[in-house]
Design a protein around this nucleic acid. Structure first.
Length: 591
RNA sequence: GGGGUCGUAGUUCAGUUGGUUAGAACGCUGCCCUGUCACGGCAGAGGCCGCGGGUUCGAGUCCCGUCGACCCCGCCA
């Protein structure tokens, strides 16, 4: 039977006890972490959020001892007792509290517990579906408990920082208007208005811009966003953004606010971040790293090799260059450990998994000898010249691909990361930030045969690219930027359009008629006409940032109650059918 | 929507070319034990081999389907 709490009042967290507390009468409240029953002497490790303390029972206090014999893992207990110093030979250096223990005068069993489905007291891996079903148990384990504490401290540092810089946290609606651009909306039916729906926000984009029109000037919100798209390790249907908007901002204004914020956030884990961060154009990112979110840790930059193949014996590449295609490659400087069969395996893998049509390699062995998969076709002289011009010496290995610029870069970008990972070049304790800037404003949708916004339709073009909107829209660049850390997009934003005439031009480019625009964004377009200050902002992915700081490869590990890849909550078993009466009230029929 | 990995005791896993009664560790239950801290010792319980079908004299093992978890592509303004 469970006992009442009565007037038991915690004096210390379990992890807090130190030799300075020796002699004190203390009350600990927590869970039974482990029991070591030696017969006439019994030790219990008591655990709470902050740590573990050892408590002791012996036959000198027989009634308590008898009660302690009933204790099992995860029972909730309260103990009153005296802190004593452990003798030198019984100190446990692995425990923060290892120099002391509590001799128990009174044990209260506040609750019993079923044997947990997986051990809380050790960190042995458990399959994720079991962990998700019993999330409340997993959250007791140090890994997730630590991640929750870390997440809180990051959020707290963020709020402190923005408060100190004159930002107001303003809440925006969760029940909002569906705007069919972008991701699929989560819809909420209106009971009052049959056949009409709210949408959960994909981001508070229009609201924060309207807050600028409203004169809020500097806005921040740590807010939930919802997107009904397929999940990934770094994508959940609901996720948390640090949403920021500033009036009178240029891109540099936003960078100047976000960079010190990142420095503050990284101080939470004791890391010094050097600011300002490097900036890189979208075009450079694609060319050198084959990605708009380059991981700068491994080096292995992709190089343009067209010059070497314009006049080459290797006809395949020569023709590709002649037809306006590209030849690109990257060099792994320390690649002596790659065996011939391993290199062949990489080529096969690239063909099968990355869709490479062909992947050529060339290498200079440790003894200076040259080999290549196209030795005969290219000739030793050419291979040698190529390696001299591009590689870093003996023991280096080069991979080369050719074709259209974009897919070739992307292929090499993927390959680069696979090999960097394999060679341990993605060091988890190295943090390489970069701003990726000058994104294209528009993206051609070949299926719908129309332009789409790459960022969103409220993004301002670069001043110098205004004319291109008319002459060559595909080459117009935007005042849009992403913050990239170790190959992860941790934030993205832009300077917005604050002029309703420009906003109309963009809508017409996007093939959105005036009527349609009015229907979808009318409230916003009207607001734009009442004195809108130039403004811009950014949204940071709090889940992703926390995951990186926690060295977790999935954001599920930093979210208290995440969903599976099939977008279900295994603990609460949501989603689920609802009562037909609820549906009737909402005027909804299931087909 | 497509591709891949995995599914055996509460947990983590092993299980040979298809062949007798499906094993180990941890956990769990009971007993013993006064300085343990991954306590130790002895004894014991615990299995729809994800589910359904097929091949076979015989299936945890082979085949087909299905469900679930994870990773990737598409998708994610």
């Amino acid at each position: 039977m469970a006992e009442q709490l009565g007037n038991l009042t915690r004096t210390h967290s379990c992890g807090a006890l130190r030799p300075s507390d020796v002699g004190a009468n203390v009350v600990l409240l927590g869970w039974v972490h482990r029991v070591r029953d030696l017969g006439g002497l019994l030790f219990v490790d008591v655990r709470d959020r902050e740590g573990v303390a050892q408590i002791v029972f012996d036959d000198d206090n027989a009634p308590q001892m008898e009660k302690a014999k009933r204790l099992r893992s995860e029972y909730v207990i309260g103990v009153e007792g005296t802190v004593r110093r452990r003798s030198a030979d019984t100190v446990n250096p692995k425990l923060g509290t290892g120099e002391v223990e509590v001799f128990v005068k009174r044990l209260t069993i506040l609750n019993e517990a079923k044997t947990p489905p997986f051990p809380i007291a050790d960190e042995t891996p458990v399959s994720e579906d079991v962990r998700l079903k019993y999330r409340y148990l997993d959250l007791r384990r140090p890994r997730l408990a630590g991640n929750m504490i870390l997440r809180h401290r990051i959020a707290a540092a963020t709020r402190r920082y923005f408060d100190a810089h004159g930002f107001l946290e303003v809440e925006t609606p969760i029940l909002t208007k569906s705007t069919p651009e972008g991701a699929r909306d989560y819809l909420v039916p209106s009971r009052v208005h049959p056949g009409e729906f709210f949408a959960l926000p994909q981001s508070p984009q229009l609201f924060k811009q309207i807050l600028m029109i409203a004169g809020i000037d500097r806005y921040v919100q740590i807010c939930k966003c919802f997107r009904d798209e397929d999940l990934r390790a770094d994508r959940q249907p609901e996720f948390t953004q640090v949403d920021v908007e500033m009036s009178f901002a240029r891109p540099e204004t936003v960078f100047g606010i976000i960079e010190p914020l990142m420095r503050d956030i990284f101080k939470v884990i004791g890391k010094d971040v050097t600011i300002p961060f490097q900036r890189m154009s979208y075009a450079d990112a694609m060319a050198k790293y084959g990605s708009d979110k380059p991981d700068l840790r491994p080096g292995l930059e992709i190089q343009d090799l067209r010059a070497h193949f314009r006049e080459s014996k290797f006809r395949v590449f020569k023709e590709i260059v002649a037809k306006g295609g590209t030849v690109r490659g990257f060099v792994i400087p320390k690649a002596s450990h790659y065996s011939r069969s391993e290199v062949d395996g990489i080529v096969d893998m690239a063909k099968q998994q990355l869709g490479a049509t062909g992947l050529v390699w060339a290498r200079r062995m440790d003894d200076g000898a040259i080999t290549s998969s196209v030795m005969k076709a290219m000739g030793e002289d050419e291979v040698s010249t190529l390696l001299d011009a591009t590689s870093t010496g003996t023991g280096s290995l080069m991979f080369i691909a050719a074709g259209d610029a974009d897919p070739t870069s992307k292929l090499l970008g993927q390959l680069r990361l696979i090999l960097a990972k394999k060679d341990g070049l993605l060091k988890p304790d190295e943090f390489r930030f970069t701003w990726v800037v000058d994104f294209p404003l528009l993206e051609w949708d070949p299926q719908e045969k129309r332009w789409n916004s790459m960022h969103h339709p409220f993004t301002s073009p670069l001043d110098e690219d205004m004319e291109k909107l008319v002459t060559d829209p595909g080459t117009a660049r935007a005042k849009a930027y992403d913050l990239v850390l170790n190959g992860s997009e941790i934030g993205g934003g832009s300077i917005r359009i604050h002029d309703s005439a420009m906003q109309s031009r963009i809508f017409s480019l996007l093939n959105i008629s005036e009527e349609e625009a009015k229907l979808r964004f009318g409230f916003f377009l009207e607001a734009l006409e009442y004195g809108t200050p130039p403004h811009g902002g950014i949204a940071l992915g709090l889940d992703r940032i926390t995951a990186i700081l926690a060295s977790e490869s999935s954001i599920r590990e930093v979210i208290a109650f995440p969903k599976t890849a099939a977008a279900v909550d295994l603990m609460s078993t949501a989603p689920s059918p609802v009562d037909p009466k609820q549906l009737r009230e909402l005027h909804i029929q299931i087909k």
